[in-house]
């Protein structure tokens, strides 16, 4: 596995009696866009902080480009780009001053690596004399990303970059990450939003400090083996409660306009719809669908909880 850029072996981390991470093992290839997906408190931030050499693992080890995260932390800190979940630039410095500051402390100049951040920085350049504290949430993220990239790191860690910013900025941010990937940059990004999983090359789904599944989003979806249907009706909430009471129901989750229903055995959608209409007294529409990534994660989480 010589192509692996980041190797994590059996990393565990406890804070006192709390086990934040339990025997995490996976690897990330060079140039991969790797997603850490999981709800709040699942250990994503702790794992990233261990990888950027900010925390010691309790047991286990990890290497980035062959450098150990504990022993070679000084060398590693030059290779790592890091964007914390909390906005951590200087709010009383202007956009340009922030960028210049981070370029200088990483012993580089803005113009040396400008090509890397050009796409991103151009969007905030009109505001370069504005104080960072006065930027909107999305622009703050763009500035933070520019600052994390300015020293041309080999690997970029982003901790929940899309939390708390608007939908448009979220889409933009993912597009930026995709473009950065083309520069052969390895990117590890954490997010609590499951729908963002399909934008990654590979994802690790985390819950309660454990990795439940690691795979490409496509494989995760293909591996889903339960019959799944989308059901929509007039009284959404009543329908959901009713579906959950049906004896053939495995799971029923709200999903946008419709409800995603998995049942124990494959059925013809028309037959199923008839059954549902009878059971719920509602004029429902039922379609057989392909599972999306969220369905897969929901199923995984439930399985784990049982």
């Amino acid at each position: 596995m010589s192509s692996d850029f980041l190797n994590i072996n059996n990393i565990s981390k406890s804070f006192g009696s709390v086990e934040a991470l339990k025997e995490i093992t996976f690897s990330v290839e060079k140039g991969e866009l790797f997603g850490l997906i999981g709800p709040d408190g699942s250990g994503k931030t702790t794992l990233i902080r261990i990888l950027i050499t900010m925390l010691f693992p309790s047991t286990g080890n990890a290497q980035i480009n062959g450098l150990d995260i504990v022993k070679d932390f000084k060398k590693l800190r030059n290779l790592i780009g890091y964007m914390p979940g909390k906005f951590s630039l200087y709010e009383d410095l202007t956009v340009e001053e922030n960028l210049k500051f981070f370029a200088t402390i990483f012993n580089t100049k803005i113009k040396d690596n400008y090509y890397l951040i050009k796409d991103i920085y151009q969007q905030i350049e009109p505001f370069r004399n504005r104080k960072a504290g006065n930027l909107s949430g999305g622009m703050k993220q763009k500035l933070a990303l520019s600052c994390a990239l300015i020293h041309k790191p080999d690997i970029l860690f982003l901790d929940e970059p899309t939390t708390g910013i608007d939908a448009v900025s979220r889409v933009e941010l993912w597009e930026m990450l995709k473009r950065l990937k083309q520069q052969n940059l390895t990117i590890v990004v954490s997010t609590p939003y499951m729908d963002e999983a399909q934008l990654c090359d590979k994802v690790a789904f985390m819950q309660k400090g454990e990795v439940l599944e690691i795979n490409t989003p496509q494989r995760i979806v293909e591996d889903f083996d339960l019959p799944i249907y989308s059901v929509s009706g007039k009284d959404y909430y009543k329908l959901l409660l009713a579906l959950r009471k049906m004896d053939i129901t495995n799971t029923a989750f709200p999903f946008g306009e419709s409800i995603h229903l998995t049942i124990k055995e494959e059925m013809n959608p028309e037959d199923l719809n008839g059954k549902i209409r009878k059971f719920t007294d509602q004029n429902t529409v039922t379609k057989r669908i392909k599972a999306n990534i969220e369905d897969c994660f929901m199923a995984k989480m439930l399985k784990k909880d049982e």
Binding site: R49, I52, T53, M54, R77, N78, I80, Y82, P84, S88, L89, F102, I105, F106, N107, C147, A148
Partner: peptide, 8 residues
């Protein structure tokens, strides 16, 4: 955090 990750 960010300062510490830097070579400063």
């Amino acid at each position: 955090e960010v300062l510490l990750v830097s070579p400063l």
